[in-house]
Design a binder for these strands. Sequence first.
DNA 1: CTGAAAGCGCTAACAA
DNA 2: TTGTTAGCGCTTTCAG
Lengths: 343, 343
Amino acid sequence: MAVTIRDIAKRAGVSRGTVDRVLHNRKGVNEEVACRVRAIAKELGFIPNLAGKALANRKQPLRIGCLLPSIGNPFFTEVIAGFRQAERELSDFGVSVDIMEVKSFDRAVHLDAIETLQSKHYDGLCITTINVEPVIAAIDRITETGTTVVTVNTDISDTHRLCYVGPDYYLGGTTASGLLSLVCKQQEQKILIVTGSFNIKGHQERIRGFLEGLTTRQMPHSIVDVIESLDDNDKAYERTLSCLKEKPEINCLYLTAAGVQGACQAVQELGKTGNIRILSFDDIPTTKALIQKGVITFTICQEPQRQGYDAIQKLFFHLMNQQEPVVDTITRTIIKIRENLDD
Amino acid sequence: MAVTIRDIAKRAGVSRGTVDRVLHNRKGVNEEVACRVRAIAKELGFIPNLAGKALANRKQPLRIGCLLPSIGNPFFTEVIAGFRQAERELSDFGVSVDIMEVKSFDRAVHLDAIETLQSKHYDGLCITTINVEPVIAAIDRITETGTTVVTVNTDISDTHRLCYVGPDYYLGGTTASGLLSLVCKQQEQKILIVTGSFNIKGHQERIRGFLEGLTTRQMPHSIVDVIESLDDNDKAYERTLSCLKEKPEINCLYLTAAGVQGACQAVQELGKTGNIRILSFDDIPTTKALIQKGVITFTICQEPQRQGYDAIQKLFFHLMNQQEPVVDTITRTIIKIRENLDD
DNA sequence: CTGAAAGCGCTAACAA
DNA sequence: TTGTTAGCGCTTTCAG
């Protein structure tokens, strides 16, 4: 039978109320008793019962706020589904989830959004934002007020976030290179890299992992060019098109970010489908369609729905039961080809 | 604010006890009142609060029993880890999980094990067993006594199980064929299929999916032979060795089941590593090592840990809150190559 | 057949 | 500084 605060109270010769105060580090307890209670709790290996806590907390439900740069970016649809699933499963424990969506990775927009979130005094935050100085500072201000922050999909370095839930971008890159090597054998690849932004660390990591992976696999290759799509289909289309025209030797496209459809459209219009091998990331509907058609050979995914789900879960368990250390959740690097696209 | 039995009781002009009796279909309630209560519950969209239930149920905890043919089969290590993780997370809700392990797929052994499980009167069962007549009947006998059964990893047809949690074997086969096609282009594959048993449906499905997938991808190929390993490394080694000697044209091995290490040993001893392409299923430690070494090109996995975890979760939620319909969980078909082997 | 009351583990408001 | 009490939603026992 599990240990309860009753057991601790009896053993320490105090009331349950006092035990509760000690366990929550609330002031107004004689330091001596506090010590004794803490010692006994540790000795007995006390773990608070979740059901009991949830029931008692019902009057002051747990409020979680989220920030996603999801407007106009279909990738985040799945992340949101994960948030919502977690909210549903945890509703019996008094959890509510608000999602704030913004467009783009603009610095001012994000700072503004974070300000707004702070003003709402959530118990916890799940956020995907940009890793730049003023944003980092804003987040530190929030954590200092006692709000717990989890970073989702994109980590924010050197801040006091509880943990990160998202992919290993470098591993995504090496996996792409590994599979490319298997598929192309010793045929030299003349590669055009279409990345999202030179300023986004995840995209850079996908390139770094890819290049190092090609070397490890001793894959003959050359990088013909690296261009930015800014996660935009139109830009990806134009720039890919002009680059392919200029450099007809290109036989491989490595798409590290959004803008997949645009880049593929350029290839298709030039009648080069089949002659140019295309690799991409994620599996938004348009990408799936291109794999079905055989335009893209494979895509590397990152469990977006799980990112949303796990972020909320982590936050919840931590808020309900401080103490045990929290580690990052690195979501899986999933290879999808035509056959296993739908699961 | 969510609806509680209190709300229903007030509205129906009865006590909470009566509402509880009605909601649990317990006898001893005037049919008229019962109807009224049921109607109000439905109208208000009542969903019982999990935390409340768990707390009240604490005196009669939920007991779940599991059956796995895991002795001597490393694949199930992960499934067990999933069972245990679920048990840990649900311990606050009074759930306990007993695991019964047997060796092999012997009919008598399984019948005996199921008998034993029945005699322990568990609230729910998670089982991996064989899909044959007497076993099916034994399971039906159990479900008739009110014990809920979930099938894990291997489904049992036409029985009154709550649901199935496991892979889509056919999809595993098509995925293997799809990736093989990408890797081998138009090079004709002369394939030796090493399956586990002709009598195990999952293995058959992996073959069927593979063959149909090769046709869909218009992959030139021939099946040189199909042999059984009986999930045993020694047998796999011997039979693969003699077959490879007899038919030196074989350039591809399709391993649908256990015995991977044995089959690979045969290839290695003949000095044919690199000349024979090998595909396998699952990622037990020995298989991982063979991928690292480059002996196996890729392996198709099925989320074994999630199988264990989800099976318990499903069972738990259903036992706590009958009513909502339960659907099967088909775990993902995961492609692993050297680079993404460890996640 | 039905209501009242106690209790699961925990929290918070109120007394002392 | 500490103890007492009521109550979260649900189940169960004991009266009636």
